[in-house]
Write a protein that binds this DNA or RNA. Structure first.
Lengths: 138, 138
DNA sequence: GTAAGGTCTGTAGCAACTACAGACTCAAGG
DNA sequence: CCTTGAGTCTGTAGTTGCTACAGACCTTAC
């Protein structure tokens, strides 16, 4: 194909981006902040990635999708990298995060009800009393 | 107490921060971006707040907690501020926000399910192999 | 061999804060 | 009356987690 020699050796940055769906520049950012390892380079300085980079980047992105902060993901990666991870630790972190997600859902449901009520009140001619303020300010 | 004359008139910035849990500087930021009104000032230029500012700031913070952007909160505040809008406009904005709330709930439910699933895979034992990490890497 | 396109670096921008620095104000104690 | 210490004022710079250049360099296809 267009870059046979390189693709025999591994992925270029754009290949990694495509393989993971990650933004091109974000890969460099993750490297800068130490979440992705400094990859080997070609003689000309081009980064060369392999399958392991694809997995790691997917791991990071999946964590972000699940609403983990960078620091939380770093923590999870440390467990992986350390090789000393215990199931108990990871489970504990996950459940803590699960609890906060459930709290957010509960809050949003309250807002949803308030908005739905407002909307139904809005069918008349007059501007209604707004229960949103009460719901949010409570 | 130490500033009786002022506290008879209202809250100072630090009082408002304490009453709402908002960061001191963030109050000024919200004022700068037009989410909080320019408050009255003492002769020396000190901001003076009252109960209405407490409610409004709580409203903003709650919205932020729930993941609304500044622009969305601005929209909600417009609803609350009311005044010049017709009922149709209010209803339209309300339903738009309702849709975004429901989308957020759906997102969080998806995250919740993923977290609950990964958590349930985990034995909680002190073994180095963790199915949650495997699931994230998958 | 040259043009198109990928990669490199550093840096600047974004949202939404958060934290100074340096000047000013104010109430209380001596 | 003066000092002291805490609170406030302004503008600006730093933070997080990206994202998007600019300008130079490298590779590949034709």
């Amino acid at each position: 194909m267009q870059n046979r020699r390189l693709s025999e050796r591994g992925y270029r940055r754009a290949d990694l981006a495509k393989a993971t769906g990650c933004n091109l520049e974000t890969i460099r950012y993750y490297e800068k902040v130490g979440m992705m390892p400094d990859p080997p380079r070609t003689a000309a300085g081009y980064r060369i990635y392999d399958k392991s980079h694809v997995s790691r980047l997917r791991f990071i992105m999946r964590g972000r999708d699940l609403g983990f902060t960078i620091e939380e993901i770093r923590g999870l990666l440390d467990l992986v990298d350390g090789g000393t991870q215990t199931c108990a630790e990871v489970k504990e972190r996950t459940e803590r995060h699960l609890a906060s997600v459930r709290a957010k859902i509960a809050d949003l449901r309250r807002i949803e009800r308030a908005l739905a009520t407002t909307s139904s009140l809005c069918s008349g001619e007059d501007v209604p009393e707004c229960p949103i303020l009460d719901a949010l300010a409570a």
